[in-house]
């Protein structure tokens, strides 16, 4: 402890701390360019009321949006070696990390929480794009492994919400190794017979899309999200032509058979509740239908059909 840590650091902290956003701010929609009253935008889950464009949602907002009554418990994630390569470009990675931690008040880019969704337990891992572009390094890999193991322990489904540009270059080949590591996380949930659902948000690209994010039992995407392997600029430079309209958007992936559905943010929760209910409850939730009593005549073709079903059931 010296005067520097005692006096100067808190002041620097105060300088970089996020200022409280006053309620009277206006935002500009990046898609239609119209102005939106800040409070309206937040109340509308950051969906533009003019054009329906989905702006990025921060990780905590995402968690409270998905869980019943916005209530959830976060789990503490394993600590990892920071900056394993002592990577330095124009800036030190260690400094980039510290800045991102100060700005987001989170240790890294993934948050893991558990709680109830539609009255049933669920584990959710969400990415925070504000933390170094949601990039995947050791900490993100550990978070997904922890989330997967918690889901298996609780016998609960795992829902992952990526928002990431891909692997974190500053962790070199170790970041590439998060691809197999997160794939194993997904496998553990699937092999435990639990639903593994991926909710793709803007953006899901690179090593993240080429690992756990594309392996969901069910893949849901938010409208307009960029989802793909290679970056648009890299593709343009390689093939030297303009990319088609809507390329790598959620709707493009739906048309190409890569995802199950594109669901607007307002309907995500109810969609998830319905899917989890269907996957997790083999019996219908409606009241029990009485069996036909003996003596009631069953039409011949219906009886034959029932016999046929029975035979199939014997597989």
């Amino acid at each position: 402890m010296n005067w520097l840590t005692n006096f100067v650091r808190p002041k620097i902290r105060a300088l970089v701390r996020k200022a409280d956003v006053p309620d009277n701010l206006w935002d500009k929609c990046p898609s239609c360019g119209k102005m939106i009253f800040h409070r309206d935008l937040e109340a509308n889950l950051r969906v533009c009321q003019h054009c329906g464009h989905h702006l990025r949602l921060d990780a905590k907002r995402r968690l409270s949006m998905l869980f019943d009554d916005g209530e959830y418990q976060r789990i503490e994630l394993p600590k990892v070696t920071l900056d394993p390569l002592r990577f330095r470009d124009r800036k030190r990675y260690a400094d980039r990390l510290k800045e991102a931690q100060a700005r987001t008040e989170e240790p890294d880019a993934t948050l893991v929480a558990h709680g109830l969704i539609g009255g049933r337990p669920a584990v959710v891992a969400v990415f925070d794009f504000a933390f170094l572009g949601g990039s995947m390094g050791m900490a993100v890999g550990e978070a997904l492994i922890a989330a997967s193991r918690l889901a298996v322990l609780q016998q609960a489904p795992l829902i992952v919400v990526p928002a990431s540009g891909g692997a974190r270059m500053q962790e070199g080949t170790l970041s590439l190794m998060q691809m197999p590591r997160t794939v194993i996380a997904a496998q553990e949930v699937k092999e435990a017979g639990l639903p593994y659902i991926v909710l793709l948000t803007d953006p899901t690209t690179g090593g993240v899309s080429a690992s756990f994010a594309m392996l969901g039992d069910i893949a849901i995407a938010e409208p307009g999200s960029i989802i793909g392997f290679a970056g648009a600029r890299v593709i343009e430079e390689t093939i030297r032509e303009k990319l088609p309209e809507g390329f790598q958007r959620a709707e493009y992936l739906l048309d190409h058979g890569m995802i199950d559905m594109v669901v607007p943010r307002h309907q995500l929760r109810e969609t998830l509740i319905r899917i989890l209910g269907l996957l997790r409850n083999p019996r219908p939730s409606a009241e029990v239908v009485a069996l036909p009593q003996a003596g009631i005549e069953i039409p011949a073709d219906a009886a034959a059909a029932a016999a046929g079903e029975g035979a199939q059931g014997d597989r």
Binding site: S211, A213, M214, F229, P244, F247, Y252, G257
Partner: peptide, 16 residues
């Protein structure tokens, strides 16, 4: 990195 590769699911193919 090409349009055709993305259209046919490069990310999914690698993940699988």
């Amino acid at each position: 990195p090409g349009i055709d590769a993305e259209a046919r699911g490069q990310a999914e193919a690698i993940a699988r």
